[in-house]
């Protein structure tokens, strides 16, 4: 199955790309997808986004599946799922 990942705003700036497509042989959860995303771009992300020791995104990362906010890392993904990652912005 194939999942499309979009990076918004500061995540995109650090990752150096607007997103990626992830090809998977099996159905996975959002948490498992995020681990795969972290493996690919985690070394480019600041420590407040990606915790390389625990191989996990921090709680401040906003997760959306098919444009809907999701908080549960066990959320199942399907072929064609669109995952978006963002952070809150401070500037005013």
């Amino acid at each position: 199955m194939r999942v499309e990942v979009t990076f918004f705003n500061i995540v995109r700036y650090y990752a150096g790309m607007p997103g990626m497509e992830v090809e998977l042989s099996d159905a996975i959860t959002l948490g498992e997808l995020l681990q795969e995303v972290g493996r690919r771009v985690g070394d480019k992300l600041p420590v407040w986004m990606w915790d390389s020791q625990n191989q996990a995104f921090h709680r401040g990362i906003l997760m959306f599946v098919n444009n809907e906010q999701v908080r549960d890392l066990a959320h199942p993904l399907h072929d064609g799922s669109q995952v978006s990652l963002s952070v809150s912005l401070s500037g005013g």
Partner: peptide
């Protein structure tokens, strides 16, 4: 609910 955690305090480009 939308933003449970703030981004780190830092200067930001606008």
């Amino acid at each position: 609910c939308m933003f449970p955690e703030p981004p780190p305090s830092a200067t930001f480009p606008v």
